[in-house]
């Protein structure tokens, strides 16, 4: 059998590890060459801006999956946080229209997400219920909770300071995009450089061994669910700003987009494997394709078919990577 040299091996590993980025770059070049008006800064900024919500959801989802669990509740938590944000301070529709400082909605959204996350984590850790079931129940129930508060109606018209978040740009980049990038930078740092991040990988790899090593697996698991919830709360807060309010079905479908992005980004559903640098590439890949379809005016059904194929492709790629690793490295 052909044995690669050390340099070749490192090159192959590098290529395999960053495959999503190469695909993303390839797709962007392809679209830029073939689609009229696709190649412009504005389009790329839009791709980033539209990636904000699924992007932030995907961070929390990745953390939970790396730690060996699942969080299906994020989409509903996001929608609920958006609903609460609008419900507290919006001017039209079903709203309390409180005269409070509108910025208080941000801690409210974060806290709300963290509380749901805590409850998820508590049930998973203390009552030993599978995360799939617990968070599925939360996914269903919390969407309902949001509907209950507003009776299934819309809320609209956020106060000016919040609306400004959507229109502010810093050195040419929308504030939303900067928030997205900061979140990724922060959590990439946490995952790769801190004990907390290291322990998440350990738990996902072998929870028993981690527990035996004296690491407080239960507390870490609850913390990771709280982080996932809080990130969903942040996404919800931003989403309500983006749409200037909240509608009953806001954000529906984003859970599966986040799952697709995470899988495409190379996070293993088995736990313990994955990096946020891959996940953001996965998110941007989906966002670029959506944008291309919008700009081309293709029938939107294409979007779903393409996404489905992408996820399948990602999984195939993953097993291919493993085989290459086994055989040649």
């Amino acid at each position: 059998m052909l044995q690669p040299s050390d340099r070749q091996r490192r090159l192959i590993t590098f290529l395999l590890d960053n495959l999503v980025w190469f695909i993303l770059i390839f797709i962007l070049i392809l679209f830029s060459l073939t689609i009229d008006k696709y190649f412009q800064i504005g389009i790329f900024i839009n791709i980033l801006r539209q990636a904000t919500f699924v992007g932030i959801l995907s961070i929390g989802l990745s953390l939970v999956i790396i730690a060996g669990h699942l969080d299906l509740s994020i989409e509903s938590v996001m929608a609920f946080a958006a609903m609460i944000t609008a419900f507290l301070v919006a001017s039209g529709g079903v709203t309390l229209a409180l005269g409070i400082n509108p910025w208080l909605t941000l801690p409210a959204a974060l806290l709300l997400g963290a509380i749901v996350g805590w409850a998820n984590g508590f049930l998973v850790v203390r009552l030993q219920i599978s995360a799939f079931i617990v968070t599925l129940a939360a996914f269903i129930g919390i969407r309902g909770l949001g509907l209950m508060i507003t009776g299934g109606r819309s809320v609209y018209g956020l106060p000016d300071p919040l609306r400004a978040v959507a229109s502010t740009t810093v050195v040419g980049l929308p504030l939303m995009v900067l928030i997205l990038i900061s979140c990724y930078a922060l959590f990439h740092f946490i995952l790769t450089r801190t004990t907390f991040g290291r322990h998440l990988y350990l738990i996902g790899g072998n929870a028993t061994a981690t527990f035996r090593a004296g690491i407080n697996v239960k507390r870490l698991t609850i913390t990771v669910f709280m982080l996932s919830g809080a990130l969903a709360g942040l996404a919800g807060w931003l989403l309500s700003i983006r749409t200037n309010g909240a509608t009953p079905n806001l954000g529906s479908g984003m859970l599966f987009e986040a799952f697709a992005a995470v899988v495409i980004g190379g996070v293993s559903l088995q736990g313990g494997v994955g990096r946020l640098t891959g996940v953001i590439a996965g998110v941007l890949l989906l966002s670029s394709i959506d944008t291309a379809i919008n700009v081309m005016g293709l029938p939107p059904q294409f979007m779903q078919v393409i996404r489905g194929l992408l996820v399948l492709f990602a999984v195939l790629l993953d097993s291919l990577k493993l085989q290459i690793h086994r055989r040649y490295l």
């Binding site: 801190t194 004990t195 290291r198 990988y201 350990l202 996902g204 790899g205 072998n206 028993t208 061994a209 981690t210 035996r212 090593a213 004296g214 690491i215 313990g272 494997v273």
Partner: peptide
Amino acid sequence: VYQDLSLCLNVDVVANFFMGRELT
């Protein structure tokens, strides 16, 4: 040291060696 190994296969040797005792 347990019968079934207490190692996390998904991380490197260093991470396993310092599991729960990371230098920070």
